[in-house]
């Protein structure tokens, strides 16, 4: 009997791969846009601006304090109420981009603030303007502190993307959910889904760990 189910599962493989592609598409777009927006917000958060900084801070706090599922429901159901017709896929990308931007914003801000103040002072003393300081002195140094958690955050966001299945986006989780209605073998079906996520996420986690080790070389103290 198990053999029968496995056979059915293998027949469904193309659907799973399509779902996997959808997961990659949603995650990829959101991570890309989220990174760009996140960096901009992060730079603002690390600055001394009086309006944008607390505003972004409040927004980020709200996003971090509420479940992603609720956020995606709000976006999906809210936009039509204010007149914008939204399909599942764009709603998902918007919600995930926002989530990504908020978490990446905090990582980037922390990274920038970790660069010793003396660096900024040295750069100012040589006459570099604000933008040049950021581009040539601050950001390159903050990357050391930003990169490992950034990759870690990407993994978290790829996992969070599974939630978009709740509004009908045909990602690999939703394919699993649909398949299990036909093939009532939850262990096999979601075992397969899990393996597919694992294949993407585990290497990224290893990358993040390796980055963390590489980035701390040369900055560890001598004897301890």
């Amino acid at each position: 009997m198990w053999g029968f189910y496995i056979e059915q599962l293998i027949h469904s493989l193309p659907f799973f791969l399509k779902g996997l592609w959808m997961t990659i598409a949603v995650s990829g777009l959101s991570l890309l846009a989220g990174t760009v927006i996140g960096f901009i917000w992060g730079i603002v958060r690390a600055s001394r601006s009086r309006f944008a900084k607390p505003l972004i801070g409040a927004w980020v706090d709200v996003i971090r304090g509420t479940p992603f599922l609720v956020q995606i429901f709000i976006i999906f159901f809210l936009f039509p109420e204010i007149g914008i017709q939204l399909e599942a896929f764009p709603a998902a990308v918007i919600a995930l981009t926002n989530l990504a931007a908020c978490f990446i914003c905090e990582i980037v801000a922390a990274g920038i603030l970790s660069v010793p103040l003396g660096q900024k002072e040295a750069a100012t003393s040589t006459g570099l303007n604000w933008f040049q300081q950021l581009r040539y002195v601050i950001m390159p140094q903050s990357m050391r502190v930003v990169l490992p958690p950034l990759v870690g955050q990407y993994v978290l966001l790829i996992k969070d993307s599974s939630v978009v299945s709740a509004i009908g986006v045909s990602d690999v989780t939703r394919v699993g959910w649909l398949t299990v209605q036909r093939i009532p073998q939850g262990l096999l079906v979601f075992g397969l889904v899990a393996v597919l996520y694992f294949v993407i996420c585990y290497p990224l986690i290893q990358l993040s760990n390796r980055l963390e080790k590489r980035m701390s070389v040369g900055y560890t103290r001598g004897k301890e």
Binding site: K159, V163, W177, G186, V189, F198, C201
Partner: peptide, 13 residues
């Protein structure tokens, strides 16, 4: 390396 939702469905189904 796997989403909570998938783990939840894994047990539920």
């Amino acid at each position: 390396s796997t989403p909570l939702l998938v783990q939840l469905f894994f047990f539920y189904f």
